[in-house]
Write a protein that binds this DNA or RNA. Structure first.
Lengths: 227, 227
DNA sequence: CGCGGCTTTGATGTTCATCAAGTAAAGTGG
DNA sequence: CCACTTTACTTGATGAACATCAAAGCCGCG
């Protein structure tokens, strides 16, 4: 935990572009950077919302835990993608949890300070609104997209997502366990594994533990589209 | 289509409570009220976003149409519940459609004017952000809730929703066709019908066309919770 | 080393989509 | 207003998709 050097922060433009330099300095003083190892809890469902949090680097999952302790992943978020833009302005407590899928760094600001900023600075408010709107849209469209597919299509979709949106290469380590994949796309662990095995048999993938290599991305894409 | 008398508008408090009276008058001048009959299209996916629209009365569905012309309902919204809070600040075009499930009245404001208002008035901006946050939360939690249930549980959940959230009585006319129910909860029309028929046989419901009467709400609720 | 969690595969049964076919209701044009 | 067409609704039969149960191998970690 340390103060963040806002001048160097990659995310400066996201939230501060609409502020003049002195204002940045003022508000930056309350900013704290936190590091999380893979697997660590960043936000626990039910806890009080005090901070405004955004991702500086890494990858996280947002998930909801139901009364039977089953987890459902709502979204996977990378830097710029998300932040605590969902409940923070309407609830006192989080109704979802966030944990790190990879080593992750967050920048945390005091929520009250953000609210003051919104009140005082129209440009900043507008930027925040646009960001919220974009994030929400993305999550909802992604949900709709997954919902209409069958098992094979969902798995294919997710693999393509990691390839094209996150890692930008065909070989990568899955940041999710088989169980978590199931929790995201709404199916059992066993069937996730079975589907992956089928893709392996069909020479679409090579699989070594968590390491995935997409060998036939065209076929995978067509499964994602039509399955 | 006529000018809206903002003094009398039920929704005044929702968006204008944070403005002083003179400001209300100024911004109200650009406001237009529109009436839609049941079934009419309010927003067509792909059309340009010019207005900021909210529901004054009635009931609407938000839905996405995929490349195979199949519709998926994202959300059902009643007054105060929604309105064009999703894409409007991040997109040029709507990526969902909205149609009236019942006779509906909307109030439409010029989006540019709303943006100006956000820029100039921090209180207003904050109110808008809170509203967006709440709406988004609600839709996402509802989606998660439905996703984890089986067929019977989903249908039960929807029936309970109409009973408790919309009509506040156990006998009501379904605002959705069987097909639309399927599009909302992600199953085929036939199975929606079958499930309703089962509930009828089990004396949980009386069904006469679109008219539903919940005869055993306790059982229905437990099916909704555990199914 | 052994325990617990993650992974894998197979066998089995349930849930659900699809196909087919018919009835009822609702809109349409003469 | 009636024949006609279309759309919504309903039920049954069938098979595909998927969950569940069971068993075993693997791996990391105390």
């Amino acid at each position: 935990m340390k103060n963040c050097d806002c001048e160097l922060c990659d995310l400066k433009n996201l939230f501060y572009s609409r502020l003049d330099p002195e204002a940045v300095l003022t508000y930056c003083s309350g900013k704290v950077e936190k590091e999380y190892a893979k697997g660590e809890v960043i936000i626990k469902e039910g806890s009080f919302i005090n901070d405004f949090i955004y991702l500086k680097s890494g990858l996280v999952k947002l998930f909801h835990t139901d009364n039977q302790q089953k987890e459902q992943i709502i979204s996977i978020a990378k830097p710029f993608d998300y932040v605590s833009l969902l409940s923070v302005f309407s609830n006192k407590e989080y109704n979802y949890s966030v944990t790190a899928l990879e080593d992750t760094v967050t920048c945390n600001l005091d929520l009250q300070q953000i609210k003051l900023l919104v009140m005082e600075n129209g440009n900043y408010a507008m930027g925040l609104i646009e960001k919220m709107s974009a994030v929400t849209d993305k999550i909802l469209l992604e949900t709709v997209e997954i919902r209409k597919k069958h098992l094979r299509g969902r798995v294919a979709h997710l693999l393509i997502y990691f390839y094209e949106q996150i890692y930008h290469r065909k070989e990568y380590d899955l940041p999710l366990s088989r169980k978590e994949i199931g929790e995201y796309i709404g199916m059992t662990t066993e069937n996730v594994i079975r589907t992956l095995s089928e893709f392996r048999k069909d020479k679409i993938l090579s699989i070594t533990g968590k390491t995935i290599e997409i060998r036939d991305s065209e076929t995978l894409k067509s499964i994602s589209s039509f399955g």
